[in-house]
Amino acid sequence: MGEEAKEEFEPKIVGFTCNWCTYAAADLAGTSRKKYPPNSRIIRLMCSARLDPMFVLKALLNGADGVFFSGCHPGECHYIKGNFYARRRIAAIRTILKQFGLDDRFKSYWISASEGEKFANTMKSLTEEVRELGPNPMRGKII
């Protein structure tokens, strides 16, 4: 892709966050007025454990240029160990995505409720990384 096209490309990113850590961190980023790019839409889950890898697949097949997931740091889950299970599922789906070179479009983070700054910075770096990847080949495809 030419540089020019890259310039104009605004990635569409969808993210799943757990209610207790990362969603709270996003709120904290808000109360701290941390600006970050407007490319991500957040879907609130109660726990990382609710992340069904099908969501990731669906998002990517629907043309999301990036998908991310973020929850409490392992060991700090509000639901005691939800994120330990989530981590395994995420690892599995990443491995599958890797086969098709899609793993770069799926990011996972651990951001705790107190890490508002980290959330905002993550949104920045995520947007840049996805912008660098260019559009999802599935974008615009009718599926």
Partner: peptide, 21 residues
């Protein structure tokens, strides 16, 4: 209500109310 079960269940027999697929 963490939804761990719902995310695993491949058939969708298990779901989390208010956070259904």
């Amino acid at each position: 209500g963490c939804g761990s079960c719902a995310s695993y269940c491949p058939s969708g027999a298990m779901s989390l109310k208010h956070f259904r697929d």
